[in-house]
Amino acid sequence: MNIYVLLKRTFDTEEKISIKNGQIEDDGAEYIINPYDEYAVEEAINIRDEHGGEVTVVTIGDEDSEKQLRTALAMGADKAVLVNTEDDLEEGDQFTTVKILEAFFEDRDVDIILGGNVAIDEASGQVGPRLAERLDIPCVTTITNIEIEGKNVKIERDVEGDVEKVETTLPLLVTCQQGLNEPRYPSLPGIMKAKKKPLDELEIDDLDLDEDDVEPKTRTTEIFLPPEKQAGKVLEGEVDDQVKELVSLLKTEAKVL
């Protein structure tokens, strides 16, 4: 099977966010594989181990993204591709990303593409379903279980807490939700092997695209932090009195009861 994973490099979830010159300050920030994309890498490896084939991990970014691609290779993916846009693109949005991915997949034989259901930074959740539409393949989002038999695929997906059972066929794009699996940590031999696995680098020119083709449809005009939350009132006294006071405060001061 030809298995592809869409991967994004994101800030570590531990990171505090600060702003410098109107941009998110990334100096010294720790980066990780977007946690939802990690489920996709893990599932892709499991599918390959069961059905054979090859797992290729694809990311769009700059040279720094190689680290996350190597991590995916160390987990067990076979190949990695970096579409390096550092020299060509100043800004992009989901339209841009999908234009590039569409061109990337144009001549490739695909059985299944897996991605995270959302990235924890920009959190649009658009890339998966947008790409499936361009490639004219079915798309199932927020999956928590998948079984493949020949061309037939049985999926369970999370719909606001309910479980939806879906049947569809390959080729297919899915986006992964928490609960699908437990992503493995790369083993030491895995890390050693990953160094020798192929990691190809492309630029948009290699995909017959130029800057105008991928010009974003949206623009960010301002980034700001939410107002800092002031620590409130910690109540005192006997528990019974605290409870009475709380209910009264919620009713009269906060007006939420």
Binding site: E122, A123, K217, R219, P226
Partner: peptide, 20 residues
């Protein structure tokens, strides 16, 4: 102009559609 949370609400951005 749309406002939306990024980094799960650790920050916000203002965004516009530029085309279409």
């Amino acid at each position: 102009v749309f406002t939306r949370p990024i980094y799960s609400g650790k920050a916000f951005e203002k965004k516009e559609i530029t085309d279409g």
